[in-house]
Amino acid sequence: MEQTKRLEMLRELCELDSVSSCEDKAAQWIQSHLPQDCRAYRDARGNLICEKKGRKTPKNKLMLTAHMDEVGFIITYIEESGLLRFEVMGDIDTRVVVAKPVRLESGKEGVIGAKPIHLQTAEERSVVLKFSELYIDIGAKSRQEAEQFVSLGDVASFCTAFTPIGTKVAAKALDNRTGCLALLELLHEDLAYDLTAVFTAQEEIGGGAGNAAFALKPDIAIVVGASDAQDVPGVSASKRRCALGKGVVLTMKHRGGNSDRELFDGTKKLCEENKIPYQINNQMTDRTDAAAISKAGSGCRTMNITIPVRYTHSPSSVCDPKDMESAAQLLKIMVEQFGDR
């Protein structure tokens, strides 16, 4: 895929609001961009399952996944004053939430405010606010008025604009719309083997991927996600995990499990043989869909590949489109090689 086309699609994907448990928008968009030869359906957990025909039926049944949900907020209470109280959906650092705009499910936009700097004590300036101290302001003057735009249980998402910065892009939800796009690109290829692509739901809050794996019974699962790149000031080289622009990330260890050693070594070899830029992140502290997939039913071999993203789970995450290209290249070759391994 051309890089400009890829960026345009990524912009559209990132601008969709699909907070965990409310993935319909992302699912519908992906479904409407699938090739003709894909049979797609949603399962009980909200996963979008796409059966793609290749030239041959593989010896190993292949399942490739990318989660389509994003972190966000859920409305827990509407104050008499019209202000909205909320909790988080997924792991969000409170510090990236203060003074940010958000969009409610109804489309109504609001802002998350806090006490102005002038009135803060020295301690208040330093100590991180709690979510219970924050609220969303949509300008409503009463609960009744607010209820025209929001109900308890509605979700809200960040609403930052997709912005090219230098050779990179900044946006909300790069974790994991980058992975979704890589998987979608793969489905548009002429593939050596049949495969099942699953755009999973609720990864950020636990995940529905395990259920899909149980139902599909793959022999090999490839999980495509985002890695938290720490290639930033103040982080020693040993703690950077991965860096933007250095290629697709192969992950051995992740919270809740390991990639299959043989698949990991095989993937590394494929990168080297095909001159695909890659890096290894063996410090992944996040739980990914791989944990649930590898233990679904009688279990399956999994491999985690990721795209490096700075400032994940914030309204302004950053990625390098070059790394998406490496991921797309690698996925196609992995399907060719792993179908009969």
Binding site: R95, A99, A114, R125, I165, V232, V235, S314
Partner: peptide, 30 residues
Amino acid sequence: GGVDRRSVMGSPVVVHTKNGNLSGVVGSIQ
């Protein structure tokens, strides 16, 4: 001026240079 340190993380910004504006984001070690 008085920038509120509680609110800067994850903020999109614009750098105003002699030759025009460049977009960026505020990062910080978590």
